[in-house]
Each structure stands twice: as structure tokens, then as C-alpha cells.
């Protein structure tokens, strides 16, 4: 996923993507929590959850197509148990809670129950929707886990501009457990998320997990973090790089040899190559796609505008490269 991330940044610089939102530094929080999910579970991501998407079987090209502007996210949320990316901060926490309330009504809470997880960042904890979601989930004892990746920065605003208390402690006021986990430790994230999901699926209600991590890159490819944060802070967190840490762990415990790491590197190269090729060859949608799926039912306004626009477009046929009238 880190390779997909770096390829995507390069593709954005080359003009192939309109924007990219780097997950650099948050891989352990995302892969650890993503691997804790069962197939039937449902995840509601924000827009940086490329690692969770990977765990849910979403191909990187689907993510790229959204940031290229070729789709709004082309995957089927039901098929993957992974909702579309949500851009308006915090909105998806309520969708997750409502979905979990539906799970309750389906009688799908219990030993083999279904759990729901909502992802968001430290900035989102200031949003009303996030706090309303905490409250709705609590009073309904809904089977949902709130997974906050506290990456320390909401674009340029540090955590102290969002909260006077550690984020995990917010949960106490809403009446459910809050736990902080080392977000750069993939195994810790796996274990804590799995426990929280099991609590939810068996009917013990919501948990807030604060994965304490760091956004090592810019907020997006449009951002310049050198304007607001010190290099020393970044260097300190680079030393805690989650991928370096898991590599050291595997090496120190004799769980992987050099051949394994070589194989991983080769796989990364292949994935990178695939991502580049897929992105560059991605076709633009057809102009009349604008009118698709606005409504489930036939809509006279949309139908008329589509027909008029199709006529307008066809009036240019044969006009040559100059176009115009």
C-alpha cells in the first residue's frame, strides 16, 4: 500500500490524478484494523483509508479513478463491506451508526454477529455529526466501533486546536469504553480492533479506539506541511515508521528471512507498475454519464435535459478539430 501511495503521488505530479491523499505513516493503523474485520462486517471510511480498502479487496485502480475524477468511487459497498469514501468530515460516523442500528433490527447481533466500524481522524472529533454518532450509538447500544486515527494534524491544525482532552477519553462522557492504541504497531491495532469488534458483534455496544499515529506526508498533494510543522517532529515519527517497525519485529523474531522481504519488494514493483499502467489508460466517462443514476425512478427533468444535451453534443459531429459554429 505504501508503494501504491508513492506511485499515486507521482501520478498526481504528472497530471494523471487531480489530487491524492497520502496515507504515509498510517499503514499499521489501517492494515491492523482492516484485517480485524470479518467478511460480513461493514466499514465506513473517510477518504484516506486506502489500507483498509486494500484489506476489503478494493483494487487500487478504483481509488485512483476517484482521485482522477473518472468516478466517485466505483466499487460496490455491499460486495466489499466497505462504503464509499466520505469527504464531508464526520458524516460517515452517523451512517455507520444507522447501519449498526439496522444490524440490531436484523437480529444479527450475537456470537456470530455483524459489527460495523467507522473511520475518521482527529479533526473529525470536533464535528457535530461525530458526537451525535457517539450519542446515538450509545443510547441504542449499537454494534459499532469508532476508529479514530489521530495522526496529530488536521491539515495545519495540531491536535490541541481540536481537543483539550485525549480523544479516547471522550467516550467516557458518552457512556462507552475508549481505548488508545499505538497506531504504528500493526499487531496492537489488530488485537485492539478485533476485541472492540467482538464486543460490538456480541451485543456489548460501541467502543472508541484512538489509534495514536502520525501523518508523515502532506494532508493532500495540494498541501505544504513545511509551512506549519517542524522537521524535528517529522524526524522523530520517522524513527517510529510502522513498516520499519514490523520489519524489525519479523527479523528479530526470525519470522521472516531476506527472501521474504525481497519477494515483498518484487510484489510492490509489480503493483506499482500495474497502478501506473491502469491509471494512464483509464478512459474518461462519457459526457452523458452526468445524467446516470441521479434518481432510481424515471425523472422528466433529467430525461429532458439529457436528450437536449445529447442533441447539442451531436450538433458538433463532423465539425472537425476546430469545433464551434
Amino acid at each position: 500500500m505504501r508503494r501504491v501511495d508513492s506511485e499515486a503521488i507521482t501520478l498526481q505530479r504528472q497530471g494523471e490524478l487531480g489530487l491524492w491523499v497520502s496515507l504515509l505513516g498510517q499503514e499499521a493503523a489501517q492494515i491492523g484494523s482492516g484485517r480485524a474485520l470479518r467478511d460480513r462486517d461493514m466499514a465506513f471510511p473517510s477518504y484516506r483509508e486506502h489500507g483498509v480498502a486494500w484489506c476489503r479487496g478494493i483494487q487500487p485502480k478504483e481509488l485512483l479513478s476517484m482521485f482522477r475524477g473518472a468516478s466517485n468511487g466505483g466499487w460496490d459497498p455491499h460486495e466489499h463491506g466497505f462504503h464509499l469514501y466520505t469527504i464531508v468530515i464526520g458524516s460517515q460516523a452517523l451512517h455507520a451508526t444507522g447501519y449498526a442500528m439496522g444490524v440490531q433490527r436484523d437480529g444479527a447481533v450475537g456470537e456470530d454477529g455483524t459489527a460495523v466500524i467507522s473511520y475518521f481522524g482527529d479533526g473529525a472529533t470536533s464535528q457535530g455529526d461525530t458526537n451525535e454518532a457517539f450519542n446515538f450509538a450509545s443510547v441504542n447500544n449499537a454494534p459499532v466501533v469508532f476508529f479514530c486515527q489521530n495522526n496529530q494534524w488536521a491539515i495545519s491544525e495540531p491536535l490541541e486546536r481540536q481537543s483539550r482532552v485525549p480523544i479516547y477519553r471522550r467516550a467516557a462522557g458518552f457512556g462507552f469504553p475508549g481505548v488508545r492504541v499505538d497506531g504504528n504497531d500493526v499487531l496492537a491495532c489488530l488485537a485492539v480492533t478485533r476485541a472492540a469488534l467482538d464486543n460490538a458483534r456480541t451485543g456489548n455496544g460501541p467502543t472508541l479506539v484512538e489509534a495514536f499515529t502520525y501523518r508523515m506526508g502532506a494532508h493532500t498533494t495540494n498541501d505544504d506541511p513545511t509551512r506549519y510543522r517542524d522537521k524535528a517532529e517529522l524526524d522523530e515519527w520517522k524513527a517510529k515508521d510502522p513498516i520499519l517497525r514490523v520489519r524489525r519485529y519479523l527479523e528479530a523474531n526470525g519470522l521472516a528471512d531476506e527472501a521474504f522481504f525481497t519477494a515483498v519488494d518484487e510484489e510492490s514493483d509489480r503493483v506499482g507498475e500495474t497502478v501506473r499502467t491502469q491509471c494512464r489508460s483509464m478512459p474518461d466517462p462519457e459526457p452523458l454519464d452526468i445524467f446516470h443514476e441521479v434518481y432510481a425512478e424515471p425523472n422528466v427533468h433529467i430525461d429532458q435535459q439529457r436528450a437536449e444535451f445529447a442533441d447539442y453534443l451531436s450538433s458538433f459531429e463532423g465539425a472537425g478539430a476546430e469545433g464551434g459554429r
Binding site: H95, G98, D129, N135
Partner: peptide, 21 residues
């Protein structure tokens, strides 16, 4: 009977609809 929060009502209704309600 929901908590007194209109955004919460509509937001959770969206999630319910995704679940088939």
C-alpha cells in the same frame, strides 16, 4: 424515539437505508 439531533436522525436513517430499511 431518537435523541434530539436532526443531523443524527437523517444520518442514521441513511445508514439504515444502506442496511435495507
Amino acid at each position: 424515539d431518537t435523541p434530539l439531533a436532526e443531523s443524527g436522525i437523517v444520518g442514521t436513517a441513511i445508514g439504515m437505508a444502506m442496511r435495507g430499511y
